[in-house]
Design a protein around this nucleic acid. Structure first.
Length: 796
DNA sequence: TAATAGAAAATTTTT
DNA sequence: TTTTCTATTA
């Protein structure tokens, strides 16, 4: 997209412009009483569509027709002539959702919607805004968008430049902090003192500033900037904000529960104009807190937008009463929620309850699921309607292994996306250097790929020169090959490479970009490198490169393609053959299947111990929402499983059933006893009481198997674990306790102060360098810097 | 500069 | 256990 001067493009229609004339569909809609698109809605949905003025929050439970409301609302606005397509701001989180919205609005109004320029993801709309006003953010309109990989490489350089030990302060971690700050709408100067101290002894803020500086020099923005910079521009320039206020007659937001602070501030600022904002979301499905999403945004909506109308969609069209009953009862254990209860009007007498069963270990778990799937298959169920939803991707392997032996078709959804694969990123880096020579990050990525003898030492020379003269790396390279600073061999290699780029760039104008792409990959030796590679994945990588070239055909220029890739990082997974889907719970949000298997419901894994440690009670609630999302994916059958033993990072761990199992209502659940599991040991030392203490629901199953499990669990003493050397008993105990302690103390701030000397059982003596809630960053005398919970240290 | 051996770290991931 | 990164050596 070319950046035109902003005023023209953004100029809103004059205030006194005549309202858009109702034509075609609109006339039909107005002329004949109720248009038929409204008649297909239930009363709540219809209210959500027809309440067009003022702020509206639609709390849409799972399977209650959320997308239908959103798309019908847009169609209604257009059909009644209240706004033109380009006067509607409609934001989603994924490209997929944006695409679907566009298509469905098109279906409703009978044709393709043209001109909805402001329908898209937060990031693509942010990028669009930022290109109009790039100079206000210190960028040029043609800025490049960096992805996570580029970000981390860049931060690595900055950390090195600052002379900070990379091992103690990994770039990844810094990237996480900076991302978090951007998510919260903070510029480097706004980062609170305490926050700045979590990284590199207080140099966090400085590094953030240096990173932003570097981005400006590279004329680049990262994903966070695509939201943060437009927000800053709107904050600083009331005239621009007013322009947008005039323009956006209606605003719609999908998945509002997933918005972060920056996105929220951006929306709020824009909504201050006409106040016609409609947010659709489900607080019970907020599962991206770890990525900066604030459930609070949705919980607070009525306060933020006084006079807001809240509409609840609770009529579920997806699942059986048993599934809804189980999910509703589970999620009712959360305290921070607005409260909804899903119900269904359909009665299906032969609906099955939610099944809970157990296995000895993950292999047996996979075997059992495999068998059940084969049974379903014999009964005529298709595999496309079956999904296995796991908490963490390492769980997938057992299923894949098993399904391969069974010859059962499966597909893994998620995982590294097409454009994130190494070979694709490498190829893209070549294209970037051809199209935008100043792209240092891309240049660095491929200078020595395939190996050309241009190693670390040479790069240092290039970097020094580039920095000294404030020129891009490639220009520095041009200079240096004219001198004798480099060994003859490396100089020749570098000169050849530069000449190649020169040649390709000359062809940019008169060759088709797909053809040029092939030439670049061939002549650079990149394709050859993979052809010579004898490893198992090489053929697949070559195939991916071909696919990349194929996908370029849809674009008319190299630049157009590069722009697309940076924002639309997904390629549709082709449906293909009948297959079982395996994916994480996170990637299952928004999908539905007849049958859903939910394996691995064990303490530590689900709820994830790490989440509990990091986010305490809030983390536990988010895990519970994840469980809720999992169950509500099922239309007809949900099978929950847990295993008594699981191998994690190569070590066997005994596990105990997830507390979420205790939170399911007996009336909707069938617990199956599987002989191999309750053989005597397997349960561990923790009393059932641990779950009961604050459980208002008092339900544990009366099934013999479950009762026995509970008994075993409480009857077993710590010493009884002693005989099983490779089951790490003590670790278990610590695990659980950590979770509880955190849960209790999250709200309160730590009792320790910075600079205090403390003692830790494992790490010895150290001094506190930073405090974040109940997490302390401590510089240990022997063990170096660690982050630990305050409950594990004592004053000294 | 490149290959190799050894150590450290291992969720979830819309853009 | 496996993968990924870093320090060492040829």
């Amino acid at each position: 997209m070319s950046g035109l001067p902003s005023s023209r493009r953004v100029a809103a229609p004059a205030e006194d412009a005549p309202p858009p004339r109702p034509g075609g569909i609109a006339a039909r809609a107005l002329g004949r009483g109720t248009p038929d698109y409204l008649e297909k809605l239930n009363p709540e949905q219809r209210e959500a569509v027809e309440t067009l003025d003022g702020p509206v929050l639609v709390l849409a439970g799972a399977g209650t027709g959320k997308t239908r409301v959103l798309t019908t609302r847009i169609a209604h606005i257009l059909a009644t002539g209240r706004a033109r397509p380009y006067e509607i701001l409609a934001v989603t989180f994924t490209n997929k959702a944006a695409r679907e919205m566009k298509n469905r609005v098109g279906d409703l109004i009978g044709g393709v919607v043209e001109g909805m320029q402001w329908l898209g993801t937060f990031h693509s709309i942010g990028a669009r805004m930022l290109r109009f006003h790039a100079e206000l953010a210190g960028l040029k309109s043609g800025f490049t968008i960096l992805d996570t990989d580029d970000q981390i490489r860049l931060m690595k350089q900055i950390i090195q430049a600052e002379g900070i030990d990379e091992k103690r302060w990994p770039a990844r971690q810094l990237a996480g902090h900076i991302d978090g700050w951007k998510n919260r709408g903070l510029a480097p100067k706004d980062v609170p003192e305490g926050d700045a101290h979590v990284f590199a002894d207080g140099r966090g803020r400085k590094l953030y500033a240096a990173y932003q500086d570097r981005l400006r020099t590279l004329n680049a923005a990262d994903f966070g900037d695509l939201v943060l910079e437009p927000l800053n521009i709107l904050r600083a320039h009331p005239d621009i904000l007013a322009d947008y206020h005039r323009r956006f007659r209606y605003m719609l937001v999908d998945e509002y529960q997933d918005t972060n602070v920056a996105q929220y501030l951006w929306l709020r600022l824009l909504a201050q104009g006409r106040r016609n904002i409609c947010c659709v979301g489900d607080d019970d499905q907020s599962i991206y807190g770890w990525r900066g999403a604030e459930v609070d945004n949705i919980l607070r909506f009525e306060k933020d937008f006084p006079g807001a109308k809240v509409i609840r969609l609770e009529r579920n069209y997806r699942s059986t009463a048993h599934i809804l009953g189980a999910a509703s009862h589970l999620i009712a254990h959360n305290e921070s929620r607005l409260g909804k209860t899903l119900f269904t009007e359909r009665a299906d007498p032969d609906a099955t309850r939610v099944a809970v069963s157990s296995s000895w270990d993950s292999e047996e778990e996979a075997r059992a699921v495999g068998e059940e799937i084969e049974q379903l298959q014999r009964k005529g169920h298709i595999l496309n309607e079956i999904a296995i939803l796991v908490r963490a991707s390492f769980q997938m392997r057992a299923f894949e292994d098993r399904f391969v032996t069974l010859g059962l078709n499966y597909r893994v959804i998620g995982g590294p996306r097409f454009y994130e694969r190494q070979e694709i990123r490498d190829a893209m880096a070549y294209f970037r250097v051809v199209a935008q020579p100043a792209d240092d990050l891309a240049f660095e990525r491929i200078v020595n790929l395939p190996r050309r003898g241009i190693g670390e030492a040479t790069m240092k020379v290039l970097h020094d020169r580039a920095r000294a003269r404030r020129i891009p790396l490639i220009d520095a390279a041009e200079d240096i090959v004219e001198t004798d600073e480099l060994a003859a061999r490396t100089r020749t290699a570098l000169r050849d490479l530069l000449a190649s780029f020169e040649r390709w760039r000359a062809q940019l104008a008169h060759l088709r970009h797909t053809e040029l792409a092939e030439i670049v990959l061939d002549e650079s030796g990149y394709t050859g490198m993979w052809q010579a590679d004898r490893s198992a994945e090489a053929p697949g990588r070559l195939e991916n490169l071909k696919e990349l070239i194929r996908s370029m055909e849809e674009f008319d220029s190299m630049l157009g393609f590069l722009e697309h890739v940076s924002l639309v990082m997904d390629v549709d997974a082709q449906a293909g053959a009948d297959a079982v889907s395996i994916m994480t719970l996170h990637s299952a949000k928004g999908l539905e299947f007849d049958t859903v298997f939910l394996p691995g419901w064990e303490e530590g894994l689900f709820p994830s111990q790490r989440t509990l440690d990091e986010s305490g009670r809030a983390g536990l609630e988010e895990e519970r929402r994840l469980a809720y999302v999992g169950i509500t994916r099922a239309r007809k059958r949900a099978h929950i499983r847990f295993a008594s033993n699981r191998r994690m990072h190569g070590l066997w761990q005994t596990s105990i059933p997830s507390r979420f199992l205790d939170e399911l209502p007996e009336a909707h659940v069938d617990v199956t006893e599987e002989t191999s599991t309750y053989g005597g040991y397997g349960m561990n030392a923790y009393g059932a009481s641990r779950f009961d203490s604050r459980d208002p629901f008092q339900n544990t199953y009366s099934t013999p198997g479950w009762q026995r499990a509970q008994k075993n669990r409480s009857g077993m003493s710590e010493s009884a674990m002693g005989g099983y050397g490779n089951f790490s008993g003590p670790k278990q105990s610590q695990r659980y306790i950590e979770g509880e302690l955190v849960a209790k103390s999250t709200a309160a701030s730590s009792a320790y102060a910075r600079g205090e000397r403390v003692f830790h059982q494992k790490f010895g003596y150290g001094r506190i360098t930073a405090i974040e809630g109940n997490k302390l960053t401590i510089d240990f005398e022997k063990a170096g810097q660690k982050r630990v919970l305050d409950s594990f240290v004592e004053r000294h």
